[in-house]
Amino acid sequence: MPDSTDPAGRPRRSRAAERILREAMRLFAERGYERTSIADIQAAAGLAPGSGALYKHFRSKEAVLAAGMEDFVAGAERARELIRTVPGPAEDALGVLARAAMQMLQDDQDVMRIVWRELEQFPELLARVRERRMQTTYAALADWLRDRADRGELRVEDPEATAAVLLGGLTSFKVFHTLLGEPPARLDDDRFVQAWLRVMLRGLLPDTRPGS
């Protein structure tokens, strides 16, 4: 269980608890939730396999999984803050957001494997991740697109659908790589982002309209 919370209400854990959580999420991603035992987690975290030391920090194996998902969800607030505050003209800001999204997805590879492969058996956790991580991030991007369109920087007819296209493309690229072991067309991230930006900006910048 978390040792305390910080002023924002996020878990503040001991180093041992963080180590347990990190190793558990790695094992869940590699082996699957059901095939990972408490003893496996304790051994990976440097604890005696039969000691029950994990229970000093977490109530159960499912509580460890839930803690990992809560950390994943907390990352959405960092993403939303970047979307709200990214500086510069829209075409530059879009590049910053794309690269930040790719880095977050890279950092969260283990969690993505767990979400896609394991959370169906935990519908409440899946709903929490879907609503508080994914849907809120899409909504924040839609608001950003709407604001930039209101300023005349972008041409956006449907902010929600456009956000789904923009973020969905980045997410799909990284999920493909994470789940199948190599990226689509064997592209590196930078080459993909450059192509993504060229395509998206042609459709979004006002001076790309036919006859302009």
Rank of each mutant, 00 (worst) to 15 (best):
D147W: 06
R151N: 01
Q42F: 02
G68Q: 02
R19F: 01
Q42D: 03
R133Q: 11
E18Y: 00
E124V: 10
L21G: 03
E18A: 09
T36C: 12
Q121T: 11
T178I: 09
I41M: 04
L166P: 06
L126N: 10
A98N: 06
Y33P: 07
E18G: 04
D110A: 15
Q42N: 05
L197H: 11
Q103S: 06
D150G: 15
G169K: 05
G95K: 14
H177D: 14
R209C: 14
D143L: 06
G9P: 06
E23G: 13
R155P: 02
S4K: 07
S51L: 02
E131Y: 09
L187I: 00
V64C: 02
R31F: 00
G68S: 01
T171D: 09
F122M: 14
A24F: 00
A139K: 12
R84Q: 03
L125E: 01
L205P: 00
M104D: 12
G75E: 09
D108K: 11
D71P: 13
S60M: 01
L201W: 14
L65E: 08
P206V: 01
S14Y: 00
L21M: 05
F28K: 08
L97K: 02
A90S: 10
D40Q: 01
P49V: 10
T36K: 12
V111H: 04
D188K: 10
M104Q: 12
L125K: 07
Y33M: 04
I114T: 15
E18H: 02
A76S: 12
E124R: 10
